[in-house]
Design a protein around this nucleic acid. Structure first.
Lengths: 341, 341
DNA sequence: GATTTTTTGATTTACGTACATCAAAATTGG
DNA sequence: CCAATTTTGATGTACGTAAATCAAAAAATC
């Protein structure tokens, strides 16, 4: 049987009220008495029953999710997962609010973060835009003791407590190796389609991709990056154009969103060419393309896992509890047509 | 504010005691009254506060894990993860007991299962040995209302509530496609190292592997399966022998354990040969081999996820609650040297 | 209509913790 | 040593549910 407050009161030779004062760091306890209680807690191995405590406190976890107002499948999926979490909120005692901010707009994000300290959420998850101001705002909130996790896109060098997302450098490296190995001894050029080089995750994916390409696949040359703004139309135009003008392209790496346009371009211009294609994010479109062999592999991050992980971590931080690190690692999913979920 | 038992009592115009009788299916409630209460529950959207209920009941979840007494890295890892779960058991209100049974011994497993119904655990997780007797024993326990999940190895066609493990056919198919794509246009022979064809997961992996090889890579011929009994020594001997005798081998798929022996054989006999190798289970040995290019890809199932998932599912079933399906899907991890955790 | 049986209500205690109140004790300052 | 202050104890209520008891009311049986 795990020890209760009564047990530590008895063991420390004090009253329940005193134990309570120590446990909830209320004033009015002499130093020596506090130490007696703390010793008893340690020796009996007491851990507060969080369920009972939450019941007594009527505790809920007001959480805020800050997301960019981007109109692409991944963000829609992320939103959907947050809505799912909201449906579970009564059972999980959470109270989740989402705030949309303009994408790629550090100032807007910062002003939302500033306002946040007023309504005192017990945790904040944000898709970070990588800018010094944002970092400063996050660091300030962390110092004010708000639990903060970055979601999908990290804020390196900031004090955020946790990052719920994949390692994008590793993702880029993995894409490069897959592409290089799939192409085997063939030599040629590789087209890279990104959303924007202003976004940290895209930069990191490209960085990892380029590094492995340079180190290990000297026969493959990376063409200048096509920036499709995560927009299917722009992506279509850029890719169709590149394929038309450059007969040496034998591989494509799409590291952002807007894959619908990419896939259309591939079907129009490259049915007869032996192209090897690797794309990010599993959506209805990329899934279909994987199945019909237009795409060879899809790298994916599971938005549902990211959202649930962010919530678990924020709750744990709010309670001052430890998290199971291995459980919260967001993995890079690699899908071939054989292991689709 | 979510409704409480008091609210439904008021709404249904009955007393708290009656609500309690309905909620906990105690006798002594007229049919019409029961329906009034059930209507109120539905209309107010009442959901029992599991935390409060567990507190009141002093509920714990006695769980039993039944594992084969196999001496390989994967089973050691699985055991370690269960021990981790035991450390968390006071916070999670679980009470986990593990039982070891001789491997590949349906009769032993059945007799353990028979005895189990006596000490009334509230959930059972087992690494299933695929045999009709086992299936019958599991089905009987399910009919007696024990929540049961299979772990790592499934029992197809049984009534088990859930399977916490990967899709092994998909794993085999994935291995085949990776190997086939990595080898590109090369033609040659593929050696397959398995533990035993008596184990369902190994059979399924081979089945998936063979299917994709036959459909899509006609230039690659699968050699007769080497059965290494998941033993490093035997694996070493078999692989070394095969490599020595057959110069046409250009790829290896190791779908079981005992990879230590495989890796040694590869380093001794195949440094100069351009072998492409895919193995299962990420261990210290396979990780090192991936990094030094002895192995090209590792397929893995995360034992920690499997154990935690099994526990979550068993608890949910014991409480009659729903599980988050997407969260409980055990994914096939594909590791290249770039995305190692 | 009286009796038995079934159904329902009212009330209490408990789970482990939080939090508030008031009195009692111990400590400190003068 | 007395007063002021701080520290501690004792006690009660609350959170939402479970489970038990006993009395009261309603229904079924004869």
């Amino acid at each position: 049987m795990r020890p209760t407050v009564h047990d530590i009161a008895a063991a420390a030779g004090v009253s329940l009220a005193t134990v309570d004062r120590v446990l909830n760091q209320r004033p009015g306890v002499r130093h020596v008495t506090r130490e007696k209680v703390e010793t008893a807690i340690r020796e009996l191995g007491y851990v507060r029953d969080v369920a009972a405590a939450n019941l007594a406190k009527g505790r809920t976890y007001p959480l805020v999710f800050i997301l960019p107002a981007s109109d692409n499948s991944f963000m829609h999926g992320l939103n959907a997962e947050i809505r799912q979490a909201v449906l579970r909120s009564s059972a999980e005692r959470t109270d989740i609010r989402t705030i949309e901010v303009p994408a790629f707009d550090p100032a807007a994000l910062v002003s939302v973060l500033e306002e946040l300290s007023r309504d005192k959420p017990c945790g904040i998850a944000l898709v970070a835009t990588d800018a010094p101001d944002v970092r400063a705002a996050v660091d300030r909130l962390v110092r004010e003791r708000f639990p903060i996790v970055t979601l999908v896109s990290d804020l390196t060098g900031s004090l955020r407590h946790h990052y719920a997302g994949v390692d994008n450098i590793a993702a880029g490296r993995t894409a490069a190796r897959l592409l290089g190995r799939f192409l085997g001894p063939r030599k040629g050029e590789i087209a890279v389609l990104a959303g924007s080089m202003l976004v940290r995750d895209h930069r990191e994916r490209l960085e990892g991709f380029s590094a492995v390409m340079a180190e290990e696949f000297p026969g493959l040359a990376i063409l200048p990056v096509l920036e499709g703004r995560d927009d299917p139309e722009i992506a279509h135009m850029l890719v169709a154009d590149a394929l038309a003008r450059n007969a040496g392209i034998i591989g494509v790496y799409s590291l952002g969103a807007g894959n619908r346009g990419l896939i259309r371009a591939l079907k129009e211009k490259a049915v007869d060419r032996m192209l090897t294609v690797i794309a990010h994010e599993l959506t209805a479109h990329t899934r279909a393309a994987l199945i019909d062999n237009t795409v060879d592999a899809i790298l994916n991050q599971d938005a549902g896992h990211e959202v649930r992980s962010a919530i678990r971590v924020l709750k744990a931080k709010a309670d001052g509890l430890a998290v199971i690190e291995a459980q919260e690692r967001i993995r890079l999913d690699i899908f071939l047509k054989d292991n689709l979920p």
